[in-house]
Design a protein around this nucleic acid. Structure first.
Lengths: 150, 150
DNA sequence: CGTTGTCACTTCGCATGCGAAATATCCTAG
DNA sequence: CTAGGATATTTCGCATGCGAAGTGACAACG
C-alpha cells in the first residue's frame, strides 16, 4: 500500500473515468439536489457559465469560452441550450454587433443558489479524506495537464 | 505559492477541463503520433477497448463495459463505431446467444503498437515534473472520485 | 468610399456518453 | 412444456464537445 509500490496506473484512464463519474453524479443525484428548486440538473460547464455571468454581467461569448477553456463552437452550443432552458439571455452588443453579451434570466439567477449548494456538496465529497496539501498537489497536477497539452 | 495558500480551486472544473484537454490532444497531435501507422486518432476509451480485448480475446461487451466503467449503452455505441472502423469484430457467442464476444481485427492488432506508444507519450507528458509520491496521491484521488460518487 | 482582411460568433457533421425502453435470449418454477 | 422473470445487448433521444466552414460586422488601407 506504500505510495510508490504499484506501477503507476494509467492516469489518462483515471481522469476519463473520474470525469464521467462526475458527469453522471450531476445528472443523477444532482437533479434532486444541485438544482433543487429548478428541478433540472445543471451540468458543470453550465454551472461555470452561470457563475461567470453572475460575476460578470454582460460578459461576451468569447469571455465565457476562455473561462471554460472550451472551444468557441462548444460554448456556442452550450449557450444555445442554456438559452433554450431560459437560464441566460443573449443580446447583441449595440456598439459592436459581432459580439454577443450575456445576462442571467430570473430563472438563471434563481438557479444560482442551488448551483452553489450542489457545487459545495460535490466539492465536499471530492475533497473528503484528503489533506489540503494533497488536494493542492492534485490541483497542481490537473492544471499541469491542462497546460502541458495545450 | 505555498501549497495551501489560495482557496482550493473548484476541482470539478479542473477535472472537466483536464479531461477535455486530453481528448483534444489525442484528437489533434494524437492523429499524427498515437495512431502513427493507421493514421486515425484512437480515443482513450477506444484504446482501452483495444488493450482489454488484446489481453482478453473473446471478451464480452459486459466485460468491456466494466473495464471502461462505462454504461452498457456507451460501450455498445463505442464498439459499433470501432467495428465500423474495422478495429474489432463482434461475434455472437454460440453457447449463449445473448452475449457478444469481441476480437481484434488485424487492423486492430496492428493499431496496438501505436496505441501503446501514444499512451506512453501521453503518460510521460502527464507525469513530467511530478514525483512518484505526488502521482500516487493524484491516482488515489482520482480513484476516490470514481468510487465516492458511485 | 470600396476592397480586403480580421474578428466574433454560429452552423454543420461527427464522436462520445447517458438513461430509458426495446429486443432477444436464457432460465426456472409449476 | 410453458409462463414469467432475469440477463445481455442494442436502439432511441438527448446533451456535450470538437474542427472546419460559414455568416455578418468592423477596420484599415488606398
Amino acid at each position: 500500500m506504500t505510495a510508490a509500490r504499484r506501477r503507476p496506473p494509467r492516469l489518462v484512464f483515471l481522469v476519463t473515468a473520474a470525469e464521467r463519474q462526475i458527469r453522471r453524479w450531476i445528472a443523477g443525484r444532482g437533479s434532486a439536489q444541485t438544482a433543487a428548486s429548478s428541478g433540472q440538473a445543471i451540468s458543470a460547464p453550465a454551472a461555470g457559465v452561470l457563475l461567470h455571468v453572475a460575476n460578470h454581467p454582460g460578459a461576451t461569448v468569447g469571455e465565457v469560452t476562455a473561462a471554460l477553456q472550451a472551444s468557441p463552437a462548444g460554448a456556442s452550443g452550450l449557450l444555445a441550450r442554456m438559452e433554450r432552458a431560459d437560464l441566460v439571455r443573449r443580446r447583441t452588443d449595440p456598439d459592436d454587433r459581432r459580439t454577443v453579451r450575456l445576462d442571467l434570466t430570473p430563472t438563471g439567477t434563481a438557479a444560482l443558489d442551488g448551483v452553489r449548494a450542489g457545487l459545495a456538496e460535490l466539492n465536499d465529497r471530492l475533497t473528503d479524506g484528503f489533506t489540503a496539501d494533497e488536494l493542492a498537489t492534485v490541483a497542481r497536477w490537473l492544471e499541469h495537464v491542462t497546460h502541458t497539452l495545450r
